[in-house]
Each structure stands twice: as structure tokens, then as C-alpha cells.
Design a protein around this nucleic acid. Structure first.
Lengths: 199, 199
DNA sequence: CAGCATTGTTGTCAATGTCTACTTTCGGAT
DNA sequence: ATCCGAAAGTAGACATTGACAACAATGCTG
């Protein structure tokens, strides 16, 4: 690899990747803009050309996180054909992402929450909920799910899945493997949606 | 009120209360040890006599938080007599605490998570889960809940409730009042536990 | 009341995020 | 080709922060 010239050429991307790795590995508190600059081999003020401040960098990482998670969700949904199968796949994908990247997921929701988050971020953060909404809506139209307010029903599903994710990342599963907890929880809400007992 | 002498007399407690108020009001990031000292009217090094470092202070606040939450849970459980009633009351109490003190709840789980958290903290953090375990266990013994692994069943309940709490504090309920989401979710898991459809 | 542990104070240090002024490089218009 | 402005990176400064150490005031116990 040739010696880098004055202009880096790809600094923004490299900052994002390195910051992601640091947060993912050592947590959000372990990320310092100056250390990040040292890691990438650039002066401490360089990041300001690409991210106005620390929050802007974190927001960009949150966008990346939501994008990757939504991709994983979409892939999971298309990999199955039945309502139950899709719900399981999507739920496991969501929780799997949370288990693999707990610090990133925290950051994602924290970023989404702060007062002047970009509209892009807000939209992305709702996408996973929208996926569930569509799944439930279609299943209800096919008669597989009992009638009722779709959004309300979806909320229950999403809450349950999100809850297992939170429990898993907060070490509250107490020895139970997260897949087991996920399966049991999804089965539970599924049965309450369809009115059919899970096996 | 008389002018305070050299010795404060109750500094530890006052630091805790002020820090709680700051975090509860403006978030964890808004808490600075030096600003806290100024608020309380004491020099910037004073807190070190009571809390070794920032983490120690946060841990103490987490202990307070778990204690208050567990008290609220216990009160909720004793206020009802039926299994369904107790589960609803406990769930609403949990989510209510989360909605009232989102930053504190975050801190509680973050504190519990870090490597050298006190055993006291670890125990307190499991207490709410234990409450659910006992409720489910008793109900199962009375035949109100279908047979099965109690811990697994409790996990589903806890995950669902915790999930609604997370959704509520992360502004993902999209207009639905948290009580409604809570009721719906608790009904769903309840029906899957008892095998009886919720109304 | 003497001595000592406790509690609070003051000064210092390195690290951090942000800002400003400066330098180097790139790329398009002439 | 070259000039010139914009873009990208550098270097230095500043206030704030958490931690630490040396010191002073206080209260308790014998």
C-alpha cells in the first residue's frame, strides 16, 4: 500500500468503520474522537471536516446500524413463506442483531431519541416496526390472524421481541439461551394473535 | 436554615439526591461531578470521600433505583389477589417506573452490566424477575397456569413487559398510550400462559 | 484535652471536544 | 498550462472534566 498523501481520500468512511468497530468492541464510552483520529492516522481536528461534532458522527453510525438491521430483517422475511415462519425469522434476526451488536443498538435508539435527529434517522428507526405491521396486516387479511387493530397487535409482537433483545443484552436471561427465550416468546405472542396454541 | 459548617453532615445523601434529580431530569450525560459539587455548594474534590469515582456514585444511584422499583413492584403485587390482577399491577408498575424515570432505568441496567458491579447490585437487579417467577409459580401450583418450565414462562412475561417499557421510553409507541400497549401485551402473554383468551 | 481518623479544600495533571487560523491539495474555468 | 477558490487536513489554543495528592478543619474517643 502506498504512503497516504495529504488528502486521505476516504476519511469519512474510514472514520465510520473504525468508530463502529470501537463501539461494537468496547462500548460507546470507549470512543474518543481524538483516539479515533490517532487510530486512523490523522490529526485530531480532521474529523470536523466530515462530522460537525461527536453527535453527528454517532448519528451517522446509527444510520448505518439501522440500515444493516433493516436489511437483515428484510432478508429474514423473504426467506420464509408462512406468517409464523416470517415472524420467527424476523424476530430471531432482530434479536440476533441485538446480541451481536448491543452497544450499537443502544446507540441507535439513543440517537433516534435526541431532539434534533435527522428525519432520515427517524424514518429508519420506524422501518422495523413497519415490517411487523405489514406482516400482521397481510396475515390478518388472509384470515390467519384474528381481527383487531393491526397496529395494536403489531405493537405487542414488537414489544415482546424487543424485550427479549433487551433481556439478552442486559444479561437477564439467566443461563437460558437467547434463541430459546426468543422462540418461546414469539410462540406466545403468535398464539395470542392466531388463537391457536403453540406446540 | 443555619449556615453550614465545615462538615456537611449529610453530604453523601445530598449528592445522591441531587445526582438523581439531574439524571432524571436531563439525562446521564448531563451529570458532571464538578457541577454536582457546585450545585450542592461544596468543593470539587469533596465527593471523593464518599464515592471513589464517578462509577461508584452511579452504582449507588442504581441501587437506589432498583430499591424503589422493587418496592413499587411489591406494593403492586400485594394490592391485588388474582393472578391476572397481580400480573397487570406489577407490569404497569414496572412500565410506569420506566416511563417516569427512563434515564435512571438505563443507568440501572448499565450499572448492573459492568464487570465489577457489587453483588448487592446484581441481586437487586434480579429481584423483579424473581417476583414474576414467584407469581407464575404460585399460579401454576393453583392450576391457573398450564404446566411447563416456570422460569421459561416467567421469562416470556418479563420480556414482554420489559419490551413495552423499552418501546415507551424510546418513543416507539407512535401515539398509543403506554397503558394501552401494556394492557394489550400483558393480556397476550397471560392468555398464552393460561390458555384462556383475553376479552 | 490530646491525638487521630474523618471530612472537606485547594492545586495540579492528563485527556477530551470544540474552535480558529493556517497549510496543502484538488479540480475546474480561463 | 496555470490560476484560483474550495475542500481536506494540520496545529495550536481553550474550557471542562475526572482523578489524584497534599493540606486544613472538624469531631470523636481515650
Amino acid at each position: 500500500m502506498t504512503e497516504r498523501a495529504y488528502h486521505h481520500g476516504n476519511l469519512r468512511q474510514e472514520l465510520l468503520e473504525r468508530a463502529w468497530a470501537t463501539i461494537d468492541g468496547d462500548g460507546l464510552d470507549a470512543l474518543s474522537l481524538r483516539q479515533l483520529a490517532r487510530d486512523v492516522g490523522v490529526s485530531h481536528g480532521a474529523s470536523a471536516r466530515h462530522f460537525a461534532d461527536r453527535t453527528a458522527l454517532l448519528d451517522a453510525i446509527a444510520v448505518t446500524g439501522f440500515t444493516r438491521m433493516n436489511d437483515a430483517l428484510a432478508a429474514a422475511v423473504t426467506s420464509e413463506t408462512t406468517f409464523a415462519g416470517q415472524l420467527h425469522a424476523a424476530g430471531l434476526a432482530y434479536i440476533g442483531f441485538a446480541v451481536d451488536h448491543p452497544a450499537i443498538l443502544d446507540l441507535m435508539y439513543k440517537a433516534k431519541h435526541h431532539p434534533d435527529a435527522s428525519p432520515e434517522l427517524a424514518a429508519l428507526s420506524r422501518a422495523s416496526m413497519v415490517v411487523v405491521n405489514e406482516l400482521v396486516g397481510e396475515a390478518q387479511a388472509r384470515g390467519e390472524v384474528r381481527s383487531g387493530d393491526i397496529e395494536r397487535q403489531s405493537l405487542v409482537v414488537f414489544a415482546a421481541v424487543h424485550g427479549v433483545a433487551a433481556l439478552a443484552t442486559d444479561d437477564l436471561l439467566d443461563g437460558v439461551h437467547w434463541r430459546d427465550a426468543a422462540e418461546a416468546t414469539i410462540d406466545a405472542v403468535l398464539s395470542s394473535l392466531t388463537g391457536v396454541d403453540a406446540p
